[in-house]
Amino acid sequence: MSTTTDLALAYNPAFLGLRFLLEVFALFCFGLWGRRRVPSPLRYLAAVAIPVAVAVVWGDFATAGDEARSGGTTFNTPGPLRLLLELGVFGGAWAALRHAGLRGTARWFLIVLVLYHIAAYDRVWWLLRH
């Protein structure tokens, strides 16, 4: 007997790998923005501190039972709020790329994000219901 997660595209190992790469790239975008846009001598601090702060919030505020993550969480966050957090982080990374002057890269990142979230509709729907 199959479960819904057996059929869920968002929980496929390849999709989980893609999601991980998108998350790491988003953190890189925040660091790149800090390095390029924060005035010296704080730029190097910003290049490290901004992605670390985003990663802490990203990792601590999760929805319990989310199989795209470990399923555990530090602060149990309602699914719709978690989805907004994710869209905010990914949208912020897109904006960071644009503000850093990498408009072409930002455009491709946005296209990949939109396609990923369309394909991972099952997880998006799960978050909206929890």
Rank of each mutant, 00 (worst) to 15 (best):
D6K: 13
T63N: 05
V48M: 13
L127E: 05
R98D: 10
G88Q: 07
R98W: 15
G34N: 08
F75A: 04
M1G: 14
R36V: 07
A47W: 08
R69M: 11
L110D: 05
T73R: 03
M1F: 06
A119P: 01
L21Q: 09
D60T: 14
Y121G: 06
V112C: 14
A55R: 00
L115G: 09
V89D: 02
V114F: 07
A96H: 01
C29W: 07
W125M: 08
L115E: 09
E67H: 13
F90K: 00
A100K: 02
G79E: 04
A14K: 12
L16D: 05
G72C: 03
A8F: 05
R43M: 08
A106G: 14
D6F: 10
E67N: 09
P51G: 09
L7H: 13
R123V: 08
N12Y: 08
G72K: 11
G65I: 00
V48S: 06
P13E: 00
N12P: 09
D66L: 00
V38K: 01
W125L: 15
T73P: 00
F90C: 04
L81E: 08
P80R: 11
T74W: 11
D60F: 15
T73F: 02
A26N: 10
N12C: 06
D60M: 13
G79A: 08
G88W: 13
V57A: 12
F75T: 02
L85E: 14
E86Q: 09
R103V: 13
A10I: 07
G71K: 12
L84M: 14
F25C: 07
G91L: 03
V56Y: 06
A8W: 03
G92W: 05
R36P: 02
D122H: 05
P51F: 02
P78N: 07
A68P: 01
R82Y: 08
L27S: 11
V38L: 01
C29Q: 07
P51Q: 10
E23N: 14
R107H: 15
V54R: 00
H117L: 12
G71Q: 14
G31R: 06
R19H: 11
T5V: 15
M1W: 06
A119Y: 11
L32S: 00
T3H: 10
V54K: 02
S40T: 11
T105N: 04
A53Y: 04
P78S: 08
L83M: 09
L27I: 09
H99M: 14
R82L: 06
D6G: 15
T74S: 12
H117W: 15
G91N: 04
F75D: 01
L81R: 02
L45D: 05
A96Q: 00
G91T: 10
V89E: 04
W108L: 12
G91I: 06
L22W: 12
E86D: 09
